[in-house]
Amino acid sequence: MGDNSNDLCETLALQLAEVEMLASMYANDGELAMDDPTAVPDIQSFIDGNSEYSQLHSRIRFTLKLHVGDASKNELEVTCNLSHEYPRTVPDIFLRCTQLSRIEHQRLCEKLALYIAELDRDEICLGSIMQWLQEHTEDHIKVSQTEVAHHKPTNTQQPRTENIFCRMWIYSHHIYNKVKRKDILEYAHDLQLTGFCVPGKPGMVVIEGLNQNVEDFWQRIRRMTWKRIVMKEKQDQEIADGKTVDDYRKFEGFEEKWFEPRQVKGRRGAHMDRGMLFQYLDEHGFGYIFPIYFEVSGKQADDPVSD
Protein backbone atom coordinates (compact mmCIF):
# COMPACT_ATOMS: atom_id res chain seq x y z
CA MET A 1 0.00 0.00 0.00
CA GLY A 2 3.06 2.25 0.16
CA ASP A 3 2.42 5.77 1.41
CA ASN A 4 -1.25 4.95 1.85
CA SER A 5 -0.29 2.21 4.28
CA ASN A 6 1.85 4.65 6.29
CA ASP A 7 -1.02 7.17 6.37
CA LEU A 8 -3.43 4.49 7.53
CA CYS A 9 -1.05 3.34 10.25
CA GLU A 10 -0.87 6.93 11.49
CA THR A 11 -4.64 7.35 11.71
CA LEU A 12 -5.09 3.99 13.41
CA ALA A 13 -2.32 4.77 15.90
CA LEU A 14 -4.13 8.02 16.74
CA GLN A 15 -7.33 6.06 17.31
CA LEU A 16 -5.66 3.66 19.73
CA ALA A 17 -4.02 6.52 21.63
CA GLU A 18 -7.35 8.33 21.92
CA VAL A 19 -9.19 5.23 23.14
CA GLU A 20 -6.48 4.71 25.77
CA MET A 21 -6.88 8.34 26.87
CA LEU A 22 -10.67 8.00 27.14
CA ALA A 23 -10.33 4.74 29.06
CA SER A 24 -8.17 6.52 31.65
CA MET A 25 -10.62 9.46 31.85
CA TYR A 26 -13.68 7.25 32.20
CA ALA A 27 -12.22 4.39 34.22
CA ASN A 28 -15.19 3.61 36.48
CA ASP A 29 -16.83 0.23 36.08
CA GLY A 30 -19.24 0.23 33.14
CA GLU A 31 -18.40 3.72 31.89
CA LEU A 32 -16.61 2.69 28.69
CA ALA A 33 -17.40 -0.57 26.92
CA MET A 34 -15.71 -1.73 23.72
CA ASP A 35 -18.11 -3.33 21.26
CA ASP A 36 -15.42 -5.71 19.96
CA PRO A 37 -12.64 -6.40 22.49
CA THR A 38 -10.45 -7.85 19.71
CA ALA A 39 -10.47 -4.58 17.71
CA VAL A 40 -7.58 -2.94 19.59
CA PRO A 41 -5.17 -5.92 19.38
CA ASP A 42 -6.14 -6.52 15.72
CA ILE A 43 -5.41 -2.92 14.79
CA GLN A 44 -2.20 -2.93 16.80
CA SER A 45 -1.10 -6.06 14.95
CA PHE A 46 -1.61 -4.29 11.63
CA ILE A 47 0.29 -1.21 12.81
CA ASP A 48 3.17 -3.44 13.94
CA GLY A 49 3.31 -5.03 10.49
CA ASN A 50 2.19 -8.44 11.68
CA SER A 51 -0.91 -8.61 9.47
CA GLU A 52 -2.14 -7.33 6.11
CA TYR A 53 -4.84 -4.71 5.68
CA SER A 54 -6.98 -7.31 3.90
CA GLN A 55 -7.06 -9.18 7.21
CA LEU A 56 -8.13 -6.12 9.20
CA HIS A 57 -11.90 -6.41 9.56
CA SER A 58 -12.15 -4.84 13.03
CA ARG A 59 -13.04 -1.22 13.73
CA ILE A 60 -13.11 0.80 16.92
CA ARG A 61 -16.66 1.00 18.26
CA PHE A 62 -17.51 1.67 21.87
CA THR A 63 -20.23 3.05 24.13
CA LEU A 64 -19.46 5.65 26.79
CA LYS A 65 -21.88 6.43 29.61
CA LEU A 66 -21.73 10.09 30.58
CA HIS A 67 -23.29 11.58 33.70
CA VAL A 68 -24.45 15.06 32.80
CA GLY A 69 -25.38 17.92 35.10
CA ASP A 70 -25.68 17.75 38.88
CA ALA A 71 -28.17 14.90 38.90
CA SER A 72 -26.37 11.57 38.71
CA LYS A 73 -29.52 9.99 37.24
CA ASN A 74 -29.01 11.99 34.03
CA GLU A 75 -27.10 9.42 32.01
CA LEU A 76 -26.24 9.87 28.36
CA GLU A 77 -25.08 6.88 26.32
CA VAL A 78 -22.69 7.89 23.54
CA THR A 79 -21.86 5.26 20.92
CA CYS A 80 -18.80 6.08 18.81
CA ASN A 81 -18.11 4.27 15.56
CA LEU A 82 -14.77 5.06 13.88
CA SER A 83 -13.86 4.33 10.29
CA HIS A 84 -10.26 3.31 9.65
CA GLU A 85 -9.66 6.79 8.21
CA TYR A 86 -10.68 8.70 11.37
CA PRO A 87 -9.64 11.41 12.30
CA ARG A 88 -9.45 12.35 8.62
CA THR A 89 -13.15 11.50 8.52
CA VAL A 90 -15.74 12.48 11.11
CA PRO A 91 -16.70 9.93 13.77
CA ASP A 92 -20.20 8.46 13.77
CA ILE A 93 -21.81 9.46 17.06
CA PHE A 94 -25.15 8.09 18.29
CA LEU A 95 -26.87 9.32 21.45
CA ARG A 96 -29.38 7.65 23.75
CA CYS A 97 -30.86 9.25 26.85
CA THR A 98 -34.16 8.30 28.53
CA GLN A 99 -34.44 11.78 30.04
CA LEU A 100 -34.61 13.42 26.59
CA SER A 101 -37.85 13.85 24.71
CA ARG A 102 -37.82 12.92 21.04
CA ILE A 103 -37.76 16.57 19.98
CA GLU A 104 -34.96 17.54 22.36
CA HIS A 105 -32.98 14.46 21.38
CA GLN A 106 -33.20 15.57 17.76
CA ARG A 107 -32.19 19.14 18.62
CA LEU A 108 -29.19 17.94 20.61
CA CYS A 109 -28.10 15.68 17.74
CA GLU A 110 -28.42 18.54 15.25
CA LYS A 111 -26.33 20.88 17.42
CA LEU A 112 -23.72 18.16 17.92
CA ALA A 113 -23.48 17.62 14.15
CA LEU A 114 -22.86 21.34 13.65
CA TYR A 115 -20.21 21.34 16.37
CA ILE A 116 -18.42 18.35 14.85
CA ALA A 117 -18.51 19.95 11.40
CA GLU A 118 -16.62 22.96 12.78
CA LEU A 119 -13.80 20.89 14.26
CA ASP A 120 -10.46 20.62 12.48
CA ARG A 121 -10.02 17.45 10.50
CA ASP A 122 -6.90 15.31 10.97
CA GLU A 123 -7.08 15.90 14.72
CA ILE A 124 -8.63 13.57 17.28
CA CYS A 125 -11.83 15.06 18.69
CA LEU A 126 -13.67 12.50 20.82
CA GLY A 127 -12.50 14.06 24.08
CA SER A 128 -13.77 17.46 22.93
CA ILE A 129 -17.09 15.93 21.86
CA MET A 130 -17.59 14.32 25.29
CA GLN A 131 -16.85 17.62 27.01
CA TRP A 132 -19.29 19.44 24.70
CA LEU A 133 -22.01 16.89 25.48
CA GLN A 134 -21.47 17.22 29.21
CA GLU A 135 -21.82 20.99 28.91
CA HIS A 136 -24.92 21.06 26.67
CA THR A 137 -27.03 17.96 27.32
CA GLU A 138 -28.47 19.09 30.66
CA ASP A 139 -30.20 22.10 29.08
CA HIS A 140 -32.10 19.81 26.73
CA ILE A 141 -33.01 17.48 29.60
CA LYS A 142 -34.47 20.42 31.53
CA VAL A 143 -36.57 21.43 28.53
CA SER A 144 -37.78 17.83 28.22
CA GLN A 145 -38.77 17.77 31.90
CA THR A 146 -40.62 21.08 31.50
CA GLU A 147 -42.54 19.65 28.56
CA VAL A 148 -43.62 16.67 30.68
CA ALA A 149 -44.63 18.88 33.63
CA HIS A 150 -46.87 21.03 31.41
CA HIS A 151 -48.19 18.21 29.28
CA LYS A 152 -51.96 18.06 29.06
CA PRO A 153 -53.36 15.14 27.08
CA THR A 154 -56.27 15.80 24.73
CA ASN A 155 -58.46 13.70 22.51
CA THR A 156 -56.47 14.90 19.51
CA GLN A 157 -53.14 13.89 20.99
CA GLN A 158 -50.86 12.04 18.55
CA PRO A 159 -49.67 8.59 19.64
CA ARG A 160 -46.32 8.68 21.43
CA THR A 161 -43.49 7.30 19.33
CA GLU A 162 -42.61 4.76 22.02
CA ASN A 163 -46.09 3.28 21.53
CA ILE A 164 -45.69 2.91 17.77
CA PHE A 165 -44.64 -0.31 16.09
CA CYS A 166 -42.76 0.30 12.84
CA ARG A 167 -41.61 -1.84 9.94
CA MET A 168 -39.24 -0.31 7.38
CA TRP A 169 -38.24 -1.63 3.95
CA ILE A 170 -34.87 -0.40 2.68
CA TYR A 171 -33.38 -0.86 -0.79
CA SER A 172 -29.71 -0.56 -1.71
CA HIS A 173 -28.01 -0.79 -5.10
CA HIS A 174 -25.84 -3.50 -3.56
CA ILE A 175 -24.57 -4.75 -0.20
CA TYR A 176 -21.20 -6.53 -0.32
CA ASN A 177 -18.91 -4.79 2.16
CA LYS A 178 -18.21 -7.06 5.13
CA VAL A 179 -17.89 -4.15 7.57
CA LYS A 180 -21.26 -2.72 6.52
CA ARG A 181 -22.90 -6.10 6.83
CA LYS A 182 -21.42 -6.57 10.29
CA ASP A 183 -22.61 -3.10 11.35
CA ILE A 184 -26.13 -3.74 10.04
CA LEU A 185 -26.36 -6.92 12.12
CA GLU A 186 -24.95 -5.21 15.21
CA TYR A 187 -27.18 -2.13 14.91
CA ALA A 188 -30.28 -4.32 14.60
CA HIS A 189 -29.21 -6.31 17.67
CA ASP A 190 -28.38 -3.18 19.70
CA LEU A 191 -31.77 -1.62 18.91
CA GLN A 192 -33.77 -4.82 19.50
CA LEU A 193 -34.98 -4.96 15.91
CA THR A 194 -36.08 -8.04 14.00
CA GLY A 195 -36.11 -8.66 10.26
CA PHE A 196 -33.46 -9.58 7.73
CA CYS A 197 -30.74 -8.27 5.42
CA VAL A 198 -30.21 -9.52 1.88
CA PRO A 199 -26.58 -9.04 0.74
CA GLY A 200 -25.75 -8.96 -2.95
CA LYS A 201 -27.19 -6.95 -5.81
CA PRO A 202 -29.58 -5.38 -5.13
CA GLY A 203 -29.41 -5.30 -1.36
CA MET A 204 -32.41 -5.30 0.91
CA VAL A 205 -32.89 -4.57 4.61
CA VAL A 206 -36.17 -5.09 6.47
CA ILE A 207 -36.38 -4.01 10.10
CA GLU A 208 -39.22 -3.96 12.61
CA GLY A 209 -39.57 -2.82 16.20
CA LEU A 210 -40.29 0.33 18.16
CA ASN A 211 -40.54 3.38 15.89
CA GLN A 212 -37.74 5.33 17.58
CA ASN A 213 -35.36 2.38 17.27
CA VAL A 214 -36.24 1.85 13.62
CA GLU A 215 -35.62 5.55 12.90
CA ASP A 216 -32.33 5.35 14.79
CA PHE A 217 -31.28 2.39 12.64
CA TRP A 218 -32.17 4.25 9.43
CA GLN A 219 -30.20 7.33 10.50
CA ARG A 220 -27.17 5.17 11.30
CA ILE A 221 -26.96 3.23 8.07
CA ARG A 222 -27.83 6.12 5.76
CA ARG A 223 -24.68 7.86 7.01
CA MET A 224 -22.56 5.08 5.53
CA THR A 225 -21.28 5.49 1.99
CA TRP A 226 -23.63 3.99 -0.59
CA LYS A 227 -24.02 4.10 -4.33
CA ARG A 228 -27.75 4.32 -3.64
CA ILE A 229 -29.90 3.61 -0.61
CA VAL A 230 -33.65 4.20 -0.46
CA MET A 231 -36.41 3.79 2.09
CA LYS A 232 -39.09 2.05 0.03
CA GLU A 233 -41.86 1.64 2.57
CA LYS A 234 -42.55 2.52 6.20
CA GLN A 235 -45.45 0.95 8.06
CA ASP A 236 -46.51 2.35 11.44
CA GLN A 237 -49.08 0.91 13.82
CA GLU A 238 -50.07 2.06 17.29
CA ILE A 239 -49.49 -0.60 19.92
CA ALA A 240 -52.86 -1.38 21.48
CA ASP A 241 -53.44 -1.46 25.23
CA GLY A 242 -52.40 -4.79 26.67
CA LYS A 243 -50.14 -5.52 23.70
CA THR A 244 -46.35 -5.30 23.35
CA VAL A 245 -44.09 -4.63 20.40
CA ASP A 246 -43.42 -8.38 20.14
CA ASP A 247 -47.08 -9.03 19.31
CA TYR A 248 -46.63 -7.17 16.01
CA ARG A 249 -43.40 -8.73 14.78
CA LYS A 250 -43.45 -10.98 11.73
CA PHE A 251 -39.82 -12.11 11.95
CA GLU A 252 -37.83 -13.80 14.70
CA GLY A 253 -34.44 -12.25 15.35
CA PHE A 254 -32.41 -10.52 12.65
CA GLU A 255 -30.30 -12.42 10.13
CA GLU A 256 -28.76 -12.35 6.69
CA LYS A 257 -30.77 -14.09 3.97
CA TRP A 258 -29.43 -15.11 0.57
CA PHE A 259 -31.72 -15.29 -2.44
CA GLU A 260 -29.26 -16.28 -5.13
CA PRO A 261 -29.01 -19.46 -7.21
CA ARG A 262 -26.91 -22.05 -5.36
CA GLN A 263 -24.16 -22.07 -7.99
CA VAL A 264 -23.46 -18.34 -7.55
CA LYS A 265 -24.33 -17.84 -3.87
CA GLY A 266 -22.13 -15.18 -2.30
CA ARG A 267 -20.33 -14.38 -5.54
CA ARG A 268 -19.74 -10.65 -5.89
CA GLY A 269 -21.76 -9.20 -8.74
CA ALA A 270 -24.33 -11.97 -8.72
CA HIS A 271 -27.92 -10.75 -8.91
CA MET A 272 -30.67 -11.67 -6.48
CA ASP A 273 -33.11 -14.39 -7.52
CA ARG A 274 -36.29 -12.34 -7.24
CA GLY A 275 -38.49 -15.42 -7.50
CA MET A 276 -36.95 -16.84 -4.33
CA LEU A 277 -37.34 -13.47 -2.61
CA PHE A 278 -41.01 -13.20 -3.62
CA GLN A 279 -41.71 -16.67 -2.25
CA TYR A 280 -40.09 -15.76 1.07
CA LEU A 281 -42.05 -12.49 1.32
CA ASP A 282 -45.30 -14.21 0.39
CA GLU A 283 -44.78 -16.82 3.09
CA HIS A 284 -44.63 -14.01 5.65
CA GLY A 285 -47.66 -12.19 4.25
CA PHE A 286 -45.74 -9.52 2.34
CA GLY A 287 -46.13 -10.58 -1.27
CA TYR A 288 -47.80 -7.22 -1.99
CA ILE A 289 -44.55 -5.45 -1.10
CA PHE A 290 -42.68 -6.94 -4.05
CA PRO A 291 -43.92 -4.54 -6.79
CA ILE A 292 -43.59 -1.58 -4.41
CA TYR A 293 -40.05 -2.56 -3.54
CA PHE A 294 -38.74 -2.86 -7.07
CA GLU A 295 -40.35 0.29 -8.46
CA VAL A 296 -38.27 3.45 -8.80
CA SER A 297 -40.22 5.42 -6.22
CA GLY A 298 -39.01 5.60 -2.64
CA LYS A 299 -37.44 7.89 -0.07
CA GLN A 300 -33.78 8.28 -0.92
CA ALA A 301 -31.11 9.17 1.62
CA ASP A 302 -29.44 12.54 1.23
CA ASP A 303 -26.33 12.87 -0.92
CA PRO A 304 -25.62 9.23 -1.75
CA VAL A 305 -22.04 8.63 -2.84
CA SER A 306 -20.27 5.82 -4.59
CA ASP A 307 -19.45 2.81 -2.48
Score class of each variant (00 low, 15 high):
1 M>S: 13
11 T>G: 12
19 V>Q: 15
23 A>K: 15
23 A>H: 13
27 A>N: 15
36 D>I: 11
37 P>A: 14
43 I>T: 11
45 S>W: 10
50 N>Q: 15
54 S>E: 15
55 Q>F: 04
56 L>F: 13
58 S>R: 09
58 S>V: 06
60 I>K: 05
64 L>V: 04
66 L>N: 03
70 D>M: 07
71 A>G: 01
72 S>L: 09
72 S>Q: 09
73 K>F: 02
74 N>E: 03
78 V>H: 01
78 V>E: 01
83 S>T: 10
92 D>S: 07
97 C>Q: 02
99 Q>G: 02
100 L>W: 04
101 S>K: 14
104 E>F: 08
104 E>Q: 12
106 Q>V: 14
108 L>I: 02
112 L>S: 09
113 A>T: 15
118 E>H: 11
120 D>W: 11
125 C>K: 13
136 H>C: 08
143 V>S: 05
143 V>T: 02
154 T>K: 09
157 Q>K: 12
158 Q>C: 03
158 Q>K: 09
158 Q>I: 11
159 P>T: 12
159 P>V: 12
170 I>N: 03
187 Y>N: 04
191 L>R: 14
197 C>D: 07
200 G>Q: 12
200 G>H: 09
207 I>G: 04
208 E>Y: 03
212 Q>H: 07
217 F>H: 07
218 W>Y: 10
219 Q>E: 05
228 R>G: 06
230 V>E: 01
233 E>A: 01
233 E>T: 00
246 D>E: 08
253 G>F: 07
260 E>A: 00
267 R>M: 06
268 R>K: 06
269 G>M: 02
269 G>F: 00
272 M>P: 06
272 M>I: 04
277 L>H: 00
285 G>D: 07
290 F>Q: 07
290 F>G: 03
292 I>D: 04
296 V>K: 10
301 A>T: 03
304 P>H: 02
